[in-house]
Design a binder for these strands. Structure first.
Lengths: 223, 223
DNA sequence: AAATTTCGTCATAATTTTGTCACAATAATT
DNA sequence: AATTATTGTGACAAAATTATGACGAAATTT
Protein backbone atom coordinates (compact mmCIF):
# COMPACT_ATOMS: atom_id res chain seq x y z
CA UNK A 1 0.00 0.00 0.00
CA UNK A 2 1.23 3.38 -0.94
CA UNK A 3 1.87 5.46 2.13
CA UNK A 4 0.80 9.02 2.62
CA UNK A 5 3.79 11.26 3.15
CA UNK A 6 3.64 13.83 5.90
CA UNK A 7 6.30 16.42 6.57
CA UNK A 8 6.65 17.48 10.20
CA UNK A 9 8.47 20.77 10.69
CA UNK A 10 9.23 21.37 14.35
CA UNK A 11 12.45 22.52 15.93
CA UNK A 12 11.87 20.91 19.28
CA UNK A 13 13.13 17.40 18.79
CA UNK A 14 11.15 15.72 21.50
CA UNK A 15 7.84 17.00 20.23
CA UNK A 16 8.80 16.24 16.66
CA UNK A 17 9.65 12.65 17.49
CA UNK A 18 6.43 12.30 19.42
CA UNK A 19 4.33 13.51 16.51
CA UNK A 20 6.31 11.27 14.22
CA UNK A 21 5.63 8.28 16.37
CA UNK A 22 1.90 8.87 16.45
CA UNK A 23 1.76 9.46 12.72
CA UNK A 24 3.78 6.33 12.16
CA UNK A 25 1.38 4.35 14.30
CA UNK A 26 -1.42 5.66 12.14
CA UNK A 27 0.36 4.28 9.10
CA UNK A 28 1.76 7.46 7.65
CA UNK A 29 5.20 7.88 6.23
CA UNK A 30 6.86 10.74 8.07
CA UNK A 31 9.57 13.13 6.98
CA UNK A 32 11.16 15.36 9.58
CA UNK A 33 12.61 18.83 9.42
CA UNK A 34 13.91 20.82 12.37
CA UNK A 35 13.86 24.17 10.62
CA UNK A 36 12.36 26.02 7.72
CA UNK A 37 15.26 25.72 5.34
CA UNK A 38 15.46 22.01 5.83
CA UNK A 39 11.71 21.79 5.41
CA UNK A 40 11.73 23.50 2.05
CA UNK A 41 14.56 21.33 0.91
CA UNK A 42 12.67 18.17 1.79
CA UNK A 43 9.50 19.55 0.33
CA UNK A 44 11.22 20.05 -2.99
CA UNK A 45 12.83 16.68 -3.15
CA UNK A 46 10.09 14.48 -1.72
CA UNK A 47 6.49 14.02 -2.61
CA UNK A 48 4.70 15.43 0.40
CA UNK A 49 0.96 15.01 0.90
CA UNK A 50 0.54 17.14 4.01
CA UNK A 51 2.67 19.46 6.12
CA UNK A 52 2.55 19.92 9.87
CA UNK A 53 4.26 23.18 10.59
CA UNK A 54 5.26 24.89 13.82
CA UNK A 55 4.91 28.65 13.81
CA UNK A 56 7.71 29.43 16.18
CA UNK A 57 11.03 28.39 14.79
CA UNK A 58 14.44 29.98 14.64
CA UNK A 59 15.65 31.53 11.35
CA UNK A 60 12.54 30.99 9.25
CA UNK A 61 9.19 30.92 10.98
CA UNK A 62 6.15 28.94 9.99
CA UNK A 63 4.54 31.74 8.03
CA UNK A 64 7.59 32.26 5.90
CA UNK A 65 7.85 28.57 5.21
CA UNK A 66 4.22 28.27 4.24
CA UNK A 67 4.52 31.32 2.02
CA UNK A 68 7.40 29.64 0.21
CA UNK A 69 5.51 26.40 -0.14
CA UNK A 70 2.43 28.17 -1.44
CA UNK A 71 4.46 29.61 -4.28
CA UNK A 72 4.59 26.23 -5.89
CA UNK A 73 2.09 24.00 -4.15
CA UNK A 74 -1.39 23.71 -2.70
CA UNK A 75 -0.42 20.91 -0.33
CA UNK A 76 -2.53 20.95 2.83
CA UNK A 77 -0.77 22.63 5.74
CA UNK A 78 -1.59 22.39 9.43
CA UNK A 79 -0.01 24.98 11.66
CA UNK A 80 0.98 24.47 15.26
CA UNK A 81 0.57 27.70 17.19
CA UNK A 82 1.66 28.41 20.70
CA UNK A 83 -1.12 30.76 21.63
CA UNK A 84 -4.66 30.71 20.50
CA UNK A 85 -4.40 34.37 19.65
CA UNK A 86 -6.77 35.26 16.93
CA UNK A 87 -4.36 37.45 15.03
CA UNK A 88 -2.16 34.42 14.57
CA UNK A 89 -4.96 32.67 12.83
CA UNK A 90 -5.85 35.61 10.71
CA UNK A 91 -2.29 35.97 9.57
CA UNK A 92 -2.12 32.29 8.89
CA UNK A 93 -5.19 31.96 6.74
CA UNK A 94 -3.79 34.79 4.73
CA UNK A 95 -0.76 32.78 3.72
CA UNK A 96 -2.78 29.72 2.92
CA UNK A 97 -2.85 27.65 6.08
CA UNK A 98 -5.58 25.03 6.00
CA UNK A 99 -5.99 24.32 9.67
CA UNK A 100 -4.70 25.13 13.11
CA UNK A 101 -3.85 23.25 16.24
CA UNK A 102 -3.07 25.26 19.32
CA UNK A 103 -0.38 24.18 21.74
CA UNK A 104 -0.64 22.48 24.04
CA UNK A 105 -2.62 20.01 21.99
CA UNK A 106 -3.53 16.38 22.51
CA UNK A 107 -2.05 14.04 19.97
CA UNK A 108 -5.53 12.70 19.49
CA UNK A 109 -6.70 16.10 18.39
CA UNK A 110 -3.78 16.52 16.03
CA UNK A 111 -4.39 13.11 14.46
CA UNK A 112 -8.07 13.90 14.05
CA UNK A 113 -7.29 17.21 12.38
CA UNK A 114 -4.79 15.63 10.06
CA UNK A 115 -7.18 12.91 8.99
CA UNK A 116 -9.97 15.40 8.50
CA UNK A 117 -7.78 17.61 6.39
CA UNK A 118 -6.57 14.70 4.27
CA UNK A 119 -10.15 13.69 3.71
CA UNK A 120 -11.13 17.24 2.87
CA UNK A 121 -8.37 17.50 0.30
CA UNK A 122 -8.98 14.06 -1.16
CA UNK A 123 -5.57 12.65 -0.45
CA UNK A 124 -5.81 8.92 -0.62
CA UNK A 125 -3.33 6.16 -0.14
CA UNK A 126 -3.91 3.90 -3.02
CA UNK A 127 -1.49 1.45 -4.38
CA UNK A 128 -2.34 2.34 -7.90
CA UNK A 129 -1.86 0.15 -10.88
CA UNK A 130 -2.23 1.98 -14.12
CA UNK A 131 -2.29 0.86 -17.66
CA UNK A 132 -1.56 2.82 -20.81
CA UNK A 133 -1.47 0.53 -23.78
CA UNK A 134 1.37 -1.90 -23.18
CA UNK A 135 2.67 0.30 -20.38
CA UNK A 136 1.82 -0.89 -16.86
CA UNK A 137 2.73 1.19 -13.85
CA UNK A 138 2.67 -0.21 -10.34
CA UNK A 139 3.35 2.67 -8.00
CA UNK A 140 3.55 0.48 -4.91
CA UNK A 141 6.28 -1.63 -6.37
CA UNK A 142 7.66 1.40 -8.15
CA UNK A 143 7.83 -0.83 -11.13
CA UNK A 144 7.02 -0.31 -14.75
CA UNK A 145 6.32 -2.98 -17.27
CA UNK A 146 6.58 -2.36 -20.97
CA UNK A 147 5.03 -5.08 -23.02
CA UNK A 148 5.11 -7.30 -19.97
CA UNK A 149 8.84 -6.75 -19.58
CA UNK A 150 10.19 -5.24 -16.40
CA UNK A 151 11.82 -1.98 -17.41
CA UNK A 152 14.09 -0.12 -15.06
CA UNK A 153 13.46 3.60 -14.98
CA UNK A 154 15.94 5.85 -13.25
CA UNK A 155 14.64 8.08 -10.45
CA UNK A 156 14.44 11.14 -12.69
CA UNK A 157 12.76 9.19 -15.44
CA UNK A 158 10.28 7.66 -13.03
CA UNK A 159 9.44 10.92 -11.32
CA UNK A 160 9.07 12.64 -14.61
CA UNK A 161 6.71 10.00 -15.92
CA UNK A 162 4.68 10.16 -12.73
CA UNK A 163 4.35 13.89 -13.14
CA UNK A 164 3.15 13.37 -16.67
CA UNK A 165 0.68 10.72 -15.62
CA UNK A 166 -0.70 12.92 -12.87
CA UNK A 167 -1.15 15.68 -15.39
CA UNK A 168 -2.15 13.69 -18.41
CA UNK A 169 -3.25 15.56 -21.52
CA UNK A 170 -1.84 18.78 -20.18
CA UNK A 171 0.91 20.72 -21.80
CA UNK A 172 3.73 21.04 -19.28
CA UNK A 173 6.46 23.57 -19.76
CA UNK A 174 10.07 22.65 -19.22
CA UNK A 175 10.09 24.99 -16.28
CA UNK A 176 7.11 23.29 -14.67
CA UNK A 177 8.74 19.95 -15.13
CA UNK A 178 12.01 21.18 -13.71
CA UNK A 179 10.29 22.68 -10.70
CA UNK A 180 8.38 19.58 -9.90
CA UNK A 181 10.88 16.87 -10.71
CA UNK A 182 14.18 18.63 -10.07
CA UNK A 183 13.04 21.06 -7.41
CA UNK A 184 12.74 24.77 -7.75
CA UNK A 185 16.31 25.44 -6.72
CA UNK A 186 17.70 23.59 -9.67
CA UNK A 187 20.11 25.68 -11.64
CA UNK A 188 20.85 23.70 -14.76
CA UNK A 189 19.73 24.04 -18.31
CA UNK A 190 16.12 23.86 -19.49
CA UNK A 191 17.07 21.34 -22.04
CA UNK A 192 18.05 18.78 -19.47
CA UNK A 193 14.38 17.92 -19.66
CA UNK A 194 14.76 17.06 -23.31
CA UNK A 195 17.35 14.47 -22.51
CA UNK A 196 15.17 12.78 -19.91
CA UNK A 197 12.26 12.83 -22.34
CA UNK A 198 14.47 11.22 -24.93
CA UNK A 199 15.35 8.44 -22.52
CA UNK A 200 11.75 8.06 -21.39
CA UNK A 201 10.44 7.74 -24.92
CA UNK A 202 13.02 5.14 -25.70
CA UNK A 203 12.26 3.03 -22.66
CA UNK A 204 8.51 3.33 -23.16
CA UNK A 205 8.78 1.57 -26.48
CA UNK A 206 5.71 1.93 -28.67
CA UNK A 207 4.01 3.99 -25.99
CA UNK A 208 6.85 6.47 -26.27
CA UNK A 209 4.91 8.75 -28.50
CA UNK A 210 2.33 9.32 -25.86
CA UNK A 211 4.80 12.00 -24.90
CA UNK A 212 4.09 14.66 -27.47
CA UNK A 213 6.24 17.68 -28.10
CA UNK A 214 4.44 20.95 -27.61
CA UNK A 215 6.61 23.24 -29.62
CA UNK A 216 7.66 26.41 -27.91
CA UNK A 217 6.37 25.13 -24.58
CA UNK A 218 7.33 21.67 -23.51
CA UNK A 219 5.64 18.29 -23.57
CA UNK A 220 2.32 16.59 -23.08
CA UNK A 221 1.48 13.05 -22.02
CA UNK A 222 -1.52 11.80 -23.95
CA UNK A 223 -3.96 9.23 -22.72
CA UNK B 1 2.75 -25.03 16.85
CA UNK B 2 4.73 -22.35 18.57
CA UNK B 3 2.60 -20.24 20.85
CA UNK B 4 2.96 -16.56 21.40
CA UNK B 5 3.72 -15.74 25.02
CA UNK B 6 1.98 -12.78 26.54
CA UNK B 7 2.70 -11.41 29.98
CA UNK B 8 -0.21 -9.70 31.69
CA UNK B 9 0.75 -7.42 34.54
CA UNK B 10 -2.30 -6.29 36.47
CA UNK B 11 -2.83 -6.14 40.19
CA UNK B 12 -6.56 -6.47 40.12
CA UNK B 13 -7.11 -10.18 39.98
CA UNK B 14 -10.54 -10.17 38.45
CA UNK B 15 -9.46 -8.05 35.49
CA UNK B 16 -6.28 -10.05 35.07
CA UNK B 17 -8.14 -13.32 34.89
CA UNK B 18 -10.57 -11.85 32.42
CA UNK B 19 -7.81 -10.71 30.12
CA UNK B 20 -6.12 -14.05 30.48
CA UNK B 21 -9.26 -15.87 29.52
CA UNK B 22 -9.74 -13.86 26.37
CA UNK B 23 -6.12 -14.17 25.36
CA UNK B 24 -6.31 -17.89 25.95
CA UNK B 25 -9.35 -18.11 23.71
CA UNK B 26 -7.37 -16.33 21.03
CA UNK B 27 -4.72 -19.01 21.26
CA UNK B 28 -2.07 -17.16 23.19
CA UNK B 29 -0.04 -18.54 26.05
CA UNK B 30 -0.51 -16.25 29.02
CA UNK B 31 1.78 -15.50 31.94
CA UNK B 32 0.40 -13.55 34.86
CA UNK B 33 1.96 -11.12 37.27
CA UNK B 34 0.15 -9.14 39.92
CA UNK B 35 2.90 -6.61 40.50
CA UNK B 36 5.98 -5.11 38.92
CA UNK B 37 8.57 -7.13 40.76
CA UNK B 38 6.92 -10.37 39.86
CA UNK B 39 6.56 -9.18 36.29
CA UNK B 40 10.26 -8.50 35.89
CA UNK B 41 11.08 -11.85 37.40
CA UNK B 42 8.90 -13.66 34.92
CA UNK B 43 10.15 -11.53 32.10
CA UNK B 44 13.71 -12.58 32.85
CA UNK B 45 13.00 -16.26 33.06
CA UNK B 46 10.45 -16.72 30.30
CA UNK B 47 10.41 -15.87 26.63
CA UNK B 48 7.82 -13.15 26.39
CA UNK B 49 6.56 -11.85 23.05
CA UNK B 50 4.33 -9.06 24.29
CA UNK B 51 3.54 -7.38 27.59
CA UNK B 52 0.20 -5.98 28.71
CA UNK B 53 0.96 -3.60 31.52
CA UNK B 54 -1.26 -1.70 33.90
CA UNK B 55 -0.04 1.76 34.81
CA UNK B 56 -1.48 1.90 38.28
CA UNK B 57 0.01 -0.72 40.49
CA UNK B 58 1.27 -0.77 44.06
CA UNK B 59 5.04 -0.69 44.70
CA UNK B 60 6.27 -0.40 41.14
CA UNK B 61 4.07 1.32 38.60
CA UNK B 62 3.80 0.57 34.91
CA UNK B 63 6.29 3.20 33.82
CA UNK B 64 8.96 1.87 36.12
CA UNK B 65 8.39 -1.65 34.94
CA UNK B 66 8.55 -0.69 31.28
CA UNK B 67 11.68 1.32 31.90
CA UNK B 68 13.29 -1.77 33.41
CA UNK B 69 12.17 -3.95 30.54
CA UNK B 70 13.41 -1.47 27.96
CA UNK B 71 16.90 -1.71 29.41
CA UNK B 72 17.19 -5.14 27.94
CA UNK B 73 14.38 -5.66 25.46
CA UNK B 74 12.35 -4.16 22.67
CA UNK B 75 9.40 -6.44 23.36
CA UNK B 76 6.12 -4.77 22.41
CA UNK B 77 4.35 -3.26 25.39
CA UNK B 78 0.72 -2.22 25.64
CA UNK B 79 -0.17 -0.01 28.55
CA UNK B 80 -3.49 0.05 30.33
CA UNK B 81 -4.24 3.54 31.57
CA UNK B 82 -7.04 4.54 33.86
CA UNK B 83 -7.60 7.99 32.48
CA UNK B 84 -7.34 9.14 28.93
CA UNK B 85 -5.11 11.94 30.12
CA UNK B 86 -2.75 12.86 27.35
CA UNK B 87 0.17 13.49 29.67
CA UNK B 88 0.05 9.84 30.54
CA UNK B 89 0.57 9.03 26.93
CA UNK B 90 3.33 11.52 26.51
CA UNK B 91 5.19 10.06 29.44
CA UNK B 92 4.55 6.59 28.14
CA UNK B 93 6.00 7.02 24.70
CA UNK B 94 9.05 8.43 26.36
CA UNK B 95 9.74 5.17 28.13
CA UNK B 96 9.06 3.10 25.06
CA UNK B 97 5.42 2.10 25.25
CA UNK B 98 4.12 0.89 21.91
CA UNK B 99 0.42 1.35 22.37
CA UNK B 100 -2.27 2.34 24.83
CA UNK B 101 -5.63 1.15 25.87
CA UNK B 102 -7.68 3.34 28.13
CA UNK B 103 -9.84 1.90 30.87
CA UNK B 104 -12.56 1.05 30.69
CA UNK B 105 -11.90 -0.87 27.50
CA UNK B 106 -13.75 -3.61 25.72
CA UNK B 107 -11.94 -6.92 25.50
CA UNK B 108 -12.52 -6.75 21.82
CA UNK B 109 -10.57 -3.53 21.60
CA UNK B 110 -7.72 -4.92 23.67
CA UNK B 111 -7.52 -8.04 21.51
CA UNK B 112 -7.51 -5.93 18.37
CA UNK B 113 -4.72 -3.76 19.69
CA UNK B 114 -2.67 -6.74 20.73
CA UNK B 115 -3.03 -8.39 17.37
CA UNK B 116 -2.22 -5.18 15.56
CA UNK B 117 0.85 -4.63 17.65
CA UNK B 118 2.03 -8.19 17.16
CA UNK B 119 1.63 -7.77 13.44
CA UNK B 120 3.38 -4.44 13.47
CA UNK B 121 6.32 -5.88 15.32
CA UNK B 122 6.44 -8.94 13.14
CA UNK B 123 5.68 -11.44 15.85
CA UNK B 124 4.09 -14.40 14.19
CA UNK B 125 2.65 -17.53 15.64
CA UNK B 126 1.62 -19.26 12.53
CA UNK B 127 3.71 -22.19 11.71
CA UNK B 128 3.81 -20.93 8.21
CA UNK B 129 5.94 -22.63 5.66
CA UNK B 130 6.72 -20.52 2.69
CA UNK B 131 8.56 -21.39 -0.40
CA UNK B 132 10.32 -19.07 -2.80
CA UNK B 133 12.26 -21.10 -5.27
CA UNK B 134 14.87 -23.02 -3.32
CA UNK B 135 14.20 -20.83 -0.30
CA UNK B 136 12.02 -22.37 2.39
CA UNK B 137 10.96 -20.35 5.38
CA UNK B 138 9.46 -21.94 8.44
CA UNK B 139 8.33 -19.09 10.64
CA UNK B 140 7.24 -21.38 13.41
CA UNK B 141 10.67 -22.84 13.79
CA UNK B 142 12.25 -19.56 12.73
CA UNK B 143 14.29 -21.60 10.35
CA UNK B 144 15.28 -21.03 6.78
CA UNK B 145 16.42 -23.61 4.30
CA UNK B 146 18.32 -22.68 1.21
CA UNK B 147 18.53 -25.48 -1.30
CA UNK B 148 17.52 -27.89 1.45
CA UNK B 149 20.41 -26.77 3.62
CA UNK B 150 19.71 -25.23 7.01
CA UNK B 151 20.97 -21.69 6.86
CA UNK B 152 21.47 -19.53 9.92
CA UNK B 153 20.20 -16.01 9.57
CA UNK B 154 21.06 -13.48 12.22
CA UNK B 155 18.17 -11.72 13.98
CA UNK B 156 18.50 -8.59 11.85
CA UNK B 157 18.73 -10.62 8.69
CA UNK B 158 15.75 -12.72 9.64
CA UNK B 159 13.59 -9.77 10.65
CA UNK B 160 14.52 -7.93 7.52
CA UNK B 161 13.63 -10.87 5.33
CA UNK B 162 10.33 -11.31 7.15
CA UNK B 163 9.50 -7.68 6.54
CA UNK B 164 10.28 -8.17 2.89
CA UNK B 165 8.20 -11.31 2.69
CA UNK B 166 5.26 -9.60 4.37
CA UNK B 167 5.53 -6.80 1.86
CA UNK B 168 6.47 -8.71 -1.20
CA UNK B 169 6.58 -6.81 -4.47
CA UNK B 170 6.54 -3.51 -2.66
CA UNK B 171 9.30 -0.97 -2.96
CA UNK B 172 10.48 -0.33 0.58
CA UNK B 173 12.57 2.68 1.41
CA UNK B 174 15.58 2.38 3.66
CA UNK B 175 13.75 4.48 6.17
CA UNK B 176 10.76 2.17 6.19
CA UNK B 177 13.02 -0.79 6.68
CA UNK B 178 14.87 0.93 9.48
CA UNK B 179 11.64 1.83 11.20
CA UNK B 180 10.29 -1.69 11.13
CA UNK B 181 13.37 -3.76 11.65
CA UNK B 182 15.56 -1.52 13.77
CA UNK B 183 12.79 0.23 15.59
CA UNK B 184 11.54 3.66 15.51
CA UNK B 185 14.21 5.39 17.50
CA UNK B 186 17.22 4.04 15.71
CA UNK B 187 19.78 6.73 15.09
CA UNK B 188 22.33 5.15 12.80
CA UNK B 189 23.03 5.51 9.16
CA UNK B 190 20.57 4.73 6.37
CA UNK B 191 23.12 2.59 4.69
CA UNK B 192 23.24 0.08 7.48
CA UNK B 193 20.37 -1.42 5.55
CA UNK B 194 22.65 -1.97 2.57
CA UNK B 195 24.96 -4.09 4.61
CA UNK B 196 22.19 -6.33 5.87
CA UNK B 197 20.87 -6.64 2.33
CA UNK B 198 24.31 -7.66 1.20
CA UNK B 199 24.45 -10.39 3.82
CA UNK B 200 20.92 -11.49 3.08
CA UNK B 201 21.53 -11.78 -0.63
CA UNK B 202 24.63 -13.82 -0.01
CA UNK B 203 22.92 -16.24 2.33
CA UNK B 204 19.90 -16.56 0.06
CA UNK B 205 22.07 -17.98 -2.67
CA UNK B 206 20.43 -18.03 -6.09
CA UNK B 207 17.29 -16.55 -4.61
CA UNK B 208 19.33 -13.56 -3.56
CA UNK B 209 18.30 -11.55 -6.52
CA UNK B 210 14.72 -11.66 -5.45
CA UNK B 211 15.86 -8.64 -3.49
CA UNK B 212 15.95 -6.01 -6.16
CA UNK B 213 17.55 -2.64 -5.76
CA UNK B 214 15.12 0.19 -6.34
CA UNK B 215 17.45 3.01 -7.17
CA UNK B 216 16.91 6.21 -5.31
CA UNK B 217 14.50 4.48 -2.95
CA UNK B 218 15.51 1.20 -1.39
CA UNK B 219 14.74 -2.41 -2.12
CA UNK B 220 11.98 -4.73 -3.22
CA UNK B 221 11.44 -8.43 -2.59
CA UNK B 222 10.02 -10.05 -5.66
CA UNK B 223 7.83 -13.09 -5.69
C1' DA C 1 35.89 -15.01 31.19
C1' DA C 2 36.63 -16.58 26.65
C1' DA C 3 34.90 -17.55 22.32
C1' DT C 4 31.81 -16.67 18.90
C1' DT C 5 28.56 -14.18 16.41
C1' DT C 6 26.37 -10.05 15.12
C1' DC C 7 26.34 -5.43 13.83
C1' DG C 8 27.45 -0.81 12.26
C1' DT C 9 30.76 2.01 9.98
C1' DC C 10 34.12 3.02 6.84
C1' DA C 11 36.86 3.00 2.70
C1' DT C 12 36.93 1.69 -1.78
C1' DA C 13 35.11 -0.44 -5.93
C1' DA C 14 31.53 -0.99 -9.20
C1' DT C 15 27.65 0.64 -11.30
C1' DT C 16 24.13 3.77 -12.69
C1' DT C 17 22.46 8.20 -13.39
C1' DT C 18 22.66 12.69 -15.01
C1' DG C 19 23.81 17.02 -17.32
C1' DT C 20 26.07 19.04 -21.09
C1' DC C 21 27.66 19.49 -25.52
C1' DA C 22 27.90 19.12 -30.40
C1' DC C 23 25.62 18.24 -34.17
C1' DA C 24 21.52 16.29 -36.74
C1' DA C 25 16.76 16.68 -37.70
C1' DT C 26 12.61 19.08 -37.92
C1' DA C 27 9.43 22.86 -37.90
C1' DA C 28 8.42 27.73 -38.55
C1' DT C 29 9.33 31.99 -40.76
C1' DT C 30 10.99 35.05 -44.18
C1' DA D 1 14.18 27.85 -51.01
C1' DA D 2 16.83 29.72 -47.60
C1' DT D 3 17.11 31.08 -42.99
C1' DT D 4 16.15 30.79 -38.27
C1' DA D 5 14.46 28.70 -34.20
C1' DT D 6 13.51 24.71 -31.79
C1' DT D 7 13.84 19.95 -30.72
C1' DG D 8 16.10 15.13 -31.11
C1' DT D 9 19.95 12.34 -30.17
C1' DG D 10 24.44 10.03 -29.34
C1' DA D 11 28.55 10.46 -26.77
C1' DC D 12 31.00 11.38 -22.79
C1' DA D 13 32.56 12.65 -18.36
C1' DA D 14 31.18 14.03 -13.82
C1' DA D 15 28.25 13.04 -10.06
C1' DA D 16 25.48 10.16 -7.40
C1' DT D 17 24.25 5.87 -5.74
C1' DT D 18 24.92 1.24 -4.46
C1' DA D 19 27.92 -3.02 -3.59
C1' DT D 20 31.29 -5.09 -0.96
C1' DG D 21 35.14 -6.42 1.99
C1' DA D 22 37.33 -5.41 6.23
C1' DC D 23 37.49 -4.22 10.91
C1' DG D 24 36.50 -3.38 15.58
C1' DA D 25 32.85 -2.79 19.01
C1' DA D 26 28.95 -4.76 21.02
C1' DA D 27 26.16 -8.46 22.05
C1' DT D 28 25.44 -13.23 22.69
C1' DT D 29 26.74 -17.81 23.72
C1' DT D 30 29.62 -21.20 25.75
Amino acid sequence: MYQINILVVEDEEKLRKLIKKYLFLEGFHVHEASNGVEALKIFDTETIDLVVLDVMMPFKNGYEVSKEIRKTSQVPIIMLTARSAEDDKLQGFDVGIDDYVTKPFSTRELMARIKALLKRTNVTSTNEKMQFGVLSIDTGARRILVDGEDMTFSPKEYDCLMYFVDNANQALSREQILNRVWGFDYFGDDRTVDTVIKRLRKKMGVEGDRIQTVRGVGYRFEV
